[in-house]
Amino acid sequence: MQWYWLPEYLPAFAEGLWLTVQLLTLAIVFGMALAVPIGLVQVTGPLPLAWLARGFCTVIRGTPLLIQLWLIYYGLGSLFPFVPAIRESFLWPILRDAFPYAVFAFTLSVAGYEGEVMRGAFRGVPKGELEAARALGMSPFQVLRRVWLPRALQNVFPTLAGEFILTLKATPLAATITVFEVYGIGTIVRQETFRIYEPLLFVAAIYLVLTGILILFFRWMESRMPRRRA
C-alpha cells in the first residue's frame, strides 16, 4: 500500500465531494418535488394521469440507471446541437456541461422510485383523518398541505431515508458521463498514478463515511418528527 499520492490529490477529492453532495441534494429535492404529485395522482386520479404516473415509475424502476444516464447524456445530448433554437438560446452553455444531465437523470430516478413509495404513503393515511380535516372546512389543497402530505411523509420516512442512501451509492455512475465527483476523481488518480487499490479503497472509505453521516442525519430528523405517544 502506497499513499504518497494522497496529499497531492486531496484538494481534488474535496471538489469531488462537493460535487457529490450537490448532485445528491439537487436530485433529492427536485426528485421529491416530482415524486409527491406522481404518488398523489395514482391515488386521486384522474385515471389517464394515474396511468401515466404508473408507466413512468415502471419504466424508471425497470431499466438500469446507467442506461438512463447514457440515454439522457449521449442520446438527448447528441440531438440538441442539431436544433439551432437550442444552440442559440441562453440554455446552451448549461446544456454543454455534463452536470445538468446528471442532475436531470438522477432527479428522474428519484422521482420514479419515490413516486412509488409516495403512492403507498398517500394510500396509507387513514380516511378518517382526511374526512376530519374536510369537516373542519379545509379546502382540498389545505387538507393536502396540512394533513395528508405530512402524515404520508411521516409514515414512510424510514423507507425514504433508505432510498436516499441508495441514491448516494448510485452517484458514482455520474463519473461515466464525465462528472468528476468523488469516484470520478478516484479514477483520475488511478490513471495518473497507476495504483489500482489505494484510490479505490480511499473512495470506498469516503462513501462509508458519507453513508454513516446520512444515516445519523436521517435518524436525527426522524427523532424531531412529532409522534403520537400511547
Partner: peptide
C-alpha cells in the same frame, strides 16, 4: 453499437426496452 453508428438515442432506447422486458 451506439458509438459505431452515432445513433445514441436509438440504441439506448432499444437497450432500455430490453431491460424493461426482463423486468416485466
Amino acid at each position: 453499437a451506439a458509438g459505431a453508428t452515432r445513433a445514441y438515442f436509438l440504441f439506448y432506447v432499444a437497450a432500455g426496452c430490453l431491460y424493461l422486458l426482463v423486468t416485466l
